[in-house]
Design a binder for these strands. Sequence first.
DNA 1: ATTATCTATAGATCTATAGATAATGC
DNA 2: ATTATCTATAGATCTATAGATAATGC
Lengths: 246, 246
Amino acid sequence: MTEAQKKGERGRPRSGTNPRPDLSAPEQILDAAAHLFVERGYSATSTRAIADEVGIRQASLYYHFPRKEQILELLLMRTVEPSMIVADYLETSGSPAAVRLTALVTFDSRQLFTAPHNVGSLYLLPEVRNGPFEPFRIERSSLRALYARLISESVDGRMDAELAGPSDGAPRPSIDYLVDVVFGMVESVITIRADRSEDDATVLTTTIAESCLRVLGHDGAEIRGVVADAETLLAEMSGTLGLSAG
Amino acid sequence: MTEAQKKGERGRPRSGTNPRPDLSAPEQILDAAAHLFVERGYSATSTRAIADEVGIRQASLYYHFPRKEQILELLLMRTVEPSMIVADYLETSGSPAAVRLTALVTFDSRQLFTAPHNVGSLYLLPEVRNGPFEPFRIERSSLRALYARLISESVDGRMDAELAGPSDGAPRPSIDYLVDVVFGMVESVITIRADRSEDDATVLTTTIAESCLRVLGHDGAEIRGVVADAETLLAEMSGTLGLSAG
DNA sequence: ATTATCTATAGATCTATAGATAATGC
DNA sequence: ATTATCTATAGATCTATAGATAATGC
């Protein structure tokens, strides 16, 4: 039995050495592409650079993916997917809105901070924001819509003073802006990670979750309880869905 | 007197029409480049695309700039410059730290939201974060350092309960994480603007400023006063420095 | 026969340089 | 003479396709 037979390998052998024999070729390509797209950007990453990192020839990529664009497409969809699963689960949960919101914030922040290669930063690429990645953008905007619903419910009856109160000429004092801020705080994990990779995921995630609650008008006394309940909810969910927390 | 003499134009006439005769050629190039770099990214924007938007030939760019990279460099330095001027001014101001911080947050948020072409989003380009733009990154990190000092002072004696209190195994309960969050909130204006350009600058800016104060443990009662004082401080500064507020 | 690679290359870029040219300024 | 453009192009890419090849599977 040959070497290739032992490993169950098919096809012509690679010219280079295989640095990640544990992964299938498409997964190796996705991993290398994620790394390079995040580090250099999409347009600045050539298919040759991806192939070099995988240890195959540039043209060999096209056996696994029909176009460079599709590699990014797949990475994007995989990156939102966990958030969407958690979002769907939380929609059906009976916990108070503030707890569900905090669970979502915590999960997404942790996800963004711990996912390999800071893939969340792919969201920030101009090619993605303004390019032809419609399906991905639709997913993202439905995630934002859930944030909006949870924030709306969480804030219900709270912060009335601020929102309805002295609207002294403020053109549009709606909670839309709180949604902007909360969604923005979660997304900011991407740039925080890029700038300060040595940060501790748990401390940062907790700080973000607490900060969101403060922004929505909760005071210090109740925040710890809500954060703890959110952690419990996430743990339950983890058991139910069989997902990893990160 | 010819047409060109009337306009005070020198050199060979352009082949195309000049869409912005009010600006010098370098300014036209910077404006077109800003627009395209933000919309498509740096690497995805060819010098030809910039030249087309300006109405000159691709090679003519190189009379004004020696390399494509230098166009981006100049845009970046111009974009941080106003923040740095305000930062320096606020360092010397006698207002309470919370007011100075709020002034800086307000100024930067407004700047990011109203600057032409959302140039703040250039900060997010991988080519900038990981490329050879050292001078710019140094400026940015000294701005962050001022945020850190102001936050540290603002928080002094406040939130002790949270920061020093039940450090139940949290690895690094320092205010560094609050700096991450506040700096991140301000930066989030960039993506908020990209996603929701119809937002109102004043409402968003105020919401961000208030949210920062909430995150730092201020309660609703005092926040309005601090925000108002910050606006007054900015107005004074505007008079002193002769800067526009945006 | 099937699979996964390889080599070779077409065709389309893209950046930057060289040198010509069409205006004004003096 | 100076200025700001132009035309032309070298040389280096880059993506994607065509077709050959070296393995296993049956």
